[in-house]
Design a protein around this nucleic acid. Structure first.
Lengths: 257, 257
DNA sequence: CGGACTCTTGATTGCAGTCAACTAAAGTGG
DNA sequence: CCACTTTAGTTGACTGCAATCAAGAGTCCG
């Protein structure tokens, strides 16, 4: 048993692929020195050229777009371990901006170097592609949410998804996790007005499924919330599992008998 | 001037990268024998293992998901030349299904072979990643549509996008193109009811911007439709262009002075 | 010729947006 | 240190966009 580097990015990559100690060292070596950004700070602005891939180490960030009518849509939420852009591309212009939602610590990876690393080891290649696939799946499921789910369902679905994503990183404690988004952020992400987010949260609380206050979310009845929100965790590829192994996953992730 | 293979997939790849004749032959060689599917036929069902990447050669298809409450959401629309899944992954289970929207001709690419091809030539690598990036961008812009655009704006935006995508393949003739989706399909894609799609189309017609009948769409005033729908073509990366070169693109694609 | 789609239009309902006012917390500056 | 501003959350009243229900017309097809 070699050294076990503790890093959210490696934790995430390990989910899908077994990396050797050497592989992990290689990946770890890609990370540029950490930087900090304040809440609401723009890490990479829309329209600028992307040369390094941002990687969230601590805190939450998002990828969002502003429309000319002043409305903002959050396209993707990033938690620790998340790579903000597809890993294999060459430098290109962004058409959305990457913004910190909380104070964050982030790193960067050279687009060139990560390509070299991916070609150097089949495991790394596998792991990076697995991660990209998961990101794609999350965004596709997001489309489903916006298209056919009601306001309350969207909230529930997001809470379930984040629960599993964070749990995979060991960031869920006692069925609850840190939830730093404001109701305005939630509205921008889910295509709802702030007021309506507020009312919908009230409903989820009233149903007894969650409580959310002081930036902390607790899910009291995951199963109920999941069923209500039509949340099927298959798309998160949590254990390289086959589809509809839903219940097994649940048990495993919830630590229930 | 080498041989110029006429194939929608190659046409699309050429948009972002200059491929050598040899590269093109390599890519072309990846394609398995064509197959046909009838309209509404499922090419690859949700939950099945994907071993070959479907590639649309003729006709339209989509990637969609069905919810337990019976609602369907179309996540992605595929036109000729579109690869239905990210090219670099290894076989995995799909959590959405790939369905023909019209009678289609499609091919398949081995996930293994395309990886080998990508590693064999920097140009091919570049082209495939450029294509993947474009696909990602399209899906992200779709999220924006569903999140913050009104029904009429969503329709307008989709029409603009497809206009440019098809135009890049030479499939736009005289400002119009073949538009095979039914109003029900449109509703499933844009998160709207069929009835409301119908009414919204009526508004676009009344404004004089489009006409749509008998599976043929004509955009009479692209500029107006674009402005109204907050459509910014930058995300389609049509000419490797820098952002906000919007107007140049427009002129070029519209063939206007 | 019946049956299945597709498109269209009218009437009604309801979910979610908008406007507005108020509280509480937290930061700012004179 | 205390007014003053800003930000976040909450609630009420009203409005409006889009869903739902319903029915009819046109078309394609077996």
């Amino acid at each position: 048993m070699g050294t076990n580097i503790v890093h959210p990015f490696l934790r995430k990559l390990r989910l899908g692929t077994r990396l050797s100690a050497e592989d992990e060292a290689t990946v770890f070596g890609l990370l540029k020195p950490y930087r900090k950004a304040a809440s609401h700070e723009i890490v990479q602005a829309e329209g600028t050229e992307l040369r390094y891939l941002p990687l969230i180490v601590e805190g939450w960030a998002c990828c969002s777009r502003m429309l000319e009518n002043g409305k903002r849509q959050i396209v993707s939420l990033f938690v620790p371990g998340d790579l903000c852009e597809p890993f294999g591309a060459s430098p290109h212009y962004l058409n959305h901006s990457i913004t910190a939602l909380t104070p964050i610590t982030f790193s960067a990876i050279s687009m060139k170097e990560i390509g070299v690393a991916a070609r150097s080891s089949p495991r790394i290649y596998e792991a990076l592609w697995g991660d990209l696939l998961k990101t794609t799946a999350i965004e596709r499921e997001f489309i489903v949410s916006l298209g056919v789910r009601s306001a309350v369902e969207r909230l529930g679905h997001l809470f379930c998804e984040l629960h599993l994503r964070l749990n995979a990183l060991g960031m869920v404690v006692d069925r609850g996790y840190n939830f730093p988004l404001t109701q305005t952020d939630l509205g921008d992400a889910l295509g709802l007005s702030t007021v309506h987010v507020n009312r919908s949260l009230k409903e989820l609380r009233k149903a007894g499924w969650i409580s959310l206050s002081e930036r902390h979310l607790m899910i009291h009845d995951f199963k109920a919330l999941q069923d209500f929100s039509f949340f099927d965790p298959a798309y998160l590829h949590l254990n390289g599992m086959a589809p509809s192994s839903r219940d097994q996953t649940l048990l495993r992730t919830m630590g229930l008998p």
